[in-house]
């Protein structure tokens, strides 16, 4: 099953992410690497159903992109209490993602 995630927008990112924890993905709809990463995340969230999944469409949310100092997609951030504690740009496989999340 595809992991849907919680969409975050320019209008609500300050409020929704202020104390957020989980995995935040910056993506573009027609980005091939984002698509591949999403397929991997589908599996990651099946294995980690309690981890919140937050998503920001980079083309629709320039303010959020700027606030997180992010220019490239896909970018994955691990959030703890609203702070970015780990960040990775580009592709990861499931094993790498699991290690990345656990070491954050």
């Amino acid at each position: 099953m595809p992991a849907e995630g919680i969409p975050i927008t320019d209008a609500d990112f300050k409020e929704k992410l202020e104390h957020a924890a989980g995995v935040l993905m910056f993506y573009k709809k027609l980005c091939p690497n984002c698509k591949a990463l999403e397929k991997m995340l589908d599996k990651f969230f099946v294995a980690n159903p309690d981890v919140p999944y937050l998503r920001i469409d980079s083309e629709e949310c320039p303010a959020a992109m700027a606030a997180f100092n992010t220019e490239r997609v896909p970018t994955i951030c691990v959030l703890q209490d609203g702070k970015v504690v780990a960040r990775k740009v580009g592709l990861m496989n499931l094993r790498e993602m699991t290690e990345f999340y656990q070491s954050a």
Binding site: P32, N33, E59, E71, R72
Partner: peptide
């Protein structure tokens, strides 16, 4: 290697 991914910058 991907303009869709990185071109906006």
């Amino acid at each position: 290697y991907c303009s869709v991914c990185d071109g906006s910058a």
